[in-house]
Design a protein around this nucleic acid. Structure first.
Lengths: 196, 196
DNA sequence: TTGCCAGCCTAACAATCGTTAGTTAGACTG
DNA sequence: CAGTCTAACTAACGATTGTTAGGCTGGCAA
């Protein structure tokens, strides 16, 4: 009988798989690699998972859920100005990529190895997420708070910069996650704001 | 007898491989996949290449050479101010990622599948390249042209933003490569420059 | 004590992997 | 016309892939 999807063993598997997927990539990580990291045999994993892709799916959806839950409230706080909202969105996004660094890296780079149905679902979620950034930039431009930048280009520049963080951030480094978040918020607000 | 490394057939192989490595990833692309795209059998490729990794190496080094040759002169033009130099570096980098988009994407994402000796060599080249950006930012801060930003964080933000371009840029899109280059140079100079 | 069952093991499966070897058809070269 | 070279073919190799099936074991419930 296949166990549930949130038993302790299953979570261990996902944790180890996340680390390996990140280091070697999903396609280059074998089921036996994952098992070995847990001192198990390859076949034993199938008491806890339905397939290798299932584990990837768990990691990716959990990360996606975290991004949405952390960023949704700030993005929809329309009582704040677009500039404040964008700053909070940047800080929230950096908070996620630094707090679940491994999962975030897998979410960002390995999601395309999902089979087509799941990949398309995730693509749609990513599109919607990017739209949150385009919308707040758009609002800022319309209200004159931001310069007349190209909205899509600016949004992609911001998200690409933030999504690069998991590849170079080290918790033991000289800057805290909060400092990195503030630095990015500062950089991009100055990049966008209209001169006073 | 193995043919040379720049025969027409070899270049075709590299072109097709570059497209497939980009779409599916190096590890998930088989030699037979590459052969099929050229209407050949898998084994036939070995008349033109020593190994699958060799093809990746060709693609990656060619891209790295292009980055160095395009950016080196601009980065070393110390008669220009740091701000001007950084703007030119950004435009040069965007020029490369848009002109050899496929190869650049492979260079940026698949280089880690090289075997260890080659991977370490490429890592060193990447480090040196990133240092060009850190150095110009550093110089700008010292001369007061730039604010007192965190140099490493700013450099990574810029490079991550620029390196994201190959994943979303479409030559048929509304913006030309030059417009995208200018937009990024503009964004990041405003982000860094001291208020007047 | 008995029986159950989760959790692991071993062994094997069909498919596919990168790569090698031997062969063949056709186009040049003398 | 004979000889050589090129570029492809087919076939197979050993290894590895994801996955399945069946058996063993130790601890808990009745």
């Amino acid at each position: 009988m296949t166990a549930g999807t949130d038993t302790p063993r299953r979570l261990q598997i996902e944790e180890v798989a996340s680390a390996l997927f990140r280091e070697r990539g999903y396609a280059a990580t074998s089921v036996r690699d994952i098992a070995q990291a847990l001192n198990l045999q390859g076949g034993s994993l199938y008491a806890h998972m339905a397939s290798k892709e299932d584990v990837l799916w768990s990691i990716v959806t959990r990360a996606a859920d975290k991004f949405n839950s952390q960023l949704g409230p700030v993005a929809e706080a329309t009582e704040a100005s677009p500039a404040d909202r964008l700053a909070n969105m940047i800080r929230a996004h950096v908070g996620v990529v630094t707090s679940i660094q491994k999962d975030a890296a897998v979410f960002l780079h390995e999601w395309r190895f999902l089979s087509s149905a799941r990949r398309e679902e995730m693509q749609a979620r990513r599109d919607a997420y990017e739209a949150l950034f385009r919308d707040v930039i758009s609002a800022g431009v319309e209200q004159g708070e931001f310069r007349e930048v190209d909205v899509k280009t600016s949004a992609m520049a911001i998200l690409s910069a933030l999504n690069g963080i998991p590849t170079w951030y080290r918790p033991s480094g000289p800057l805290t996650a909060d400092q990195i978040a503030d630095e990015h918020a500062d950089l991009f607000l100055r990049a966008l704001e209209s001169p006073r």
